[in-house]
Simulated assay, not measured.
Amino acid sequence: MAGETRHPNAPSRALLEGMYRTALKIRVFETEGIKLYRQGLIRGYFHPYLGQEGIATGVCAALKEGDYIASTHRGHGHCIAWGADVKKMVAELLQKETGYCKGYGGSMHIADISVGNLGANGIVGAGTPLGVGAALANQIKGNDAVTVTFTTDGASNNGTFLESLNLAAIWNLSFVLVIENNQYAVSTKIEESTRETDLYKRGTAIGVESHQVDGNDPLAVYEVMKQAVETCRAGKGPVLIEAKTYRHMGHHVNDPGKYMPADRLAYYKERDPVDRARDALTKMTDIEASEIEAIEAEIRQEFEDAVEFSRASGEVGVAEFREFAAIY
């Protein structure tokens, strides 16, 4: 994945600016979210998307209203790229009643079915069959919606991976399975869990159009995803995309990640997806430095406002919690 990626079609400023906003918003959300966790304001686990921002950014930029996404335990970036309200996301993390799931979901279970966000999922690999089910439902309805499931290299060894993808292939579903290959399943490196580390080949083996892309290049991800969406809307799905990346830290905030080689981490940090989104915007458009600074200030202010909103929000009361628990 070394070297610069060539982009044959000059993208619009609106697209590039939108992708930089998304990538940076994810970076700010995760970086500042870690601080909230350290302050004891976020309970439970917190799995940062740091270093993987280019994937959610590029994938969601190629989708449209009416499409669907299904997420993973590391799902904040997917929600933000899909256009989630940062105030409601922070409120959910802080277990406030103004959160997307009234605080019941927390970090690993944010969902908004009203806009096609089928939700994050704490069960490894569970989002893949959910996505296939949604794609089948849309086929039965006769619409052209595309469903995307984000999954992981670790989940690719789960039986639901090939079972679900094979069903999608048999039924020609408008389904895109995106493997975010950050090369570790918790602390197990990919070379220790499979002989063939090019995971896109698993799709090729069962007759699914499959691609591998540099997941740290948001524009490259967008371009391959755009093609995948066109394939699906033409009734020739599904498509598998393996986006190779590397997280910037351990599996979760309390994992020091000492098993990650320093030189390998440095290699990927030099190819930081947020920096590359910014570089693409500055080099391919006429945007001024002052405009970029304004975008960055706006995004940071948005997060600060979200924290203030969340702190002022109440938590679900005991009576309402018991009523909720009785239903589910």
Rank of each mutant, 00 (worst) to 15 (best):
E223V: 01
K244Y: 12
D263G: 04
P218N: 12
V253Y: 10
R195T: 11
H211F: 12
D217W: 10
E223M: 11
M249C: 01
E223Y: 05
T245H: 13
P256A: 08
A205G: 15
Q227P: 01
I241F: 04
L219Y: 06
V186R: 14
G237Y: 07
H248G: 01
Q227G: 13
I206Q: 01
L240Q: 04
I190E: 09
R233L: 02
Y184S: 04
G237H: 04
L219R: 08
T204S: 13
G250Y: 05
P261A: 05
A243Y: 09
E230Q: 14
A243N: 12
C232I: 02
A262V: 14
V239N: 06
G235C: 09
A185K: 05
V221M: 09
A243L: 10
A228N: 06
I206A: 02
T231Q: 01
E209G: 01
R264K: 15
P218K: 11
S187Q: 06
K189V: 15
P261C: 02
Q212M: 15
R195V: 03
M260D: 08
K226F: 03
Y259E: 03
L219F: 02
H252L: 08
S210H: 10
A228C: 12
Q212E: 13
M260A: 05
D255A: 07
E196Q: 14
E209C: 11
E223T: 04
H252P: 02
A228Y: 11
Y200F: 14
G250W: 07
R195H: 08
T194S: 11
P218I: 09
V186W: 11
L219E: 12
H248I: 02
V186T: 14
D263T: 14
G207R: 12
E223L: 14
Y200A: 07
G257Y: 11
S193P: 00
Y246S: 07
Q227I: 01
V229A: 07
R233F: 09
D217V: 07
I206S: 05
R264S: 13
A205L: 12
G203C: 09
G207T: 04
T194Y: 00
P238G: 05
G235V: 10
V253F: 08
R264L: 08
E209W: 14
T231P: 01
K236T: 02
P218M: 06
V213Y: 13
K244D: 00
Y200M: 03
E223K: 10
H248V: 08
Q227R: 15
G257H: 02
M225E: 03
N254G: 01
A266Y: 03
E242P: 01
G215P: 06
K201I: 00
T245P: 15
I206N: 03
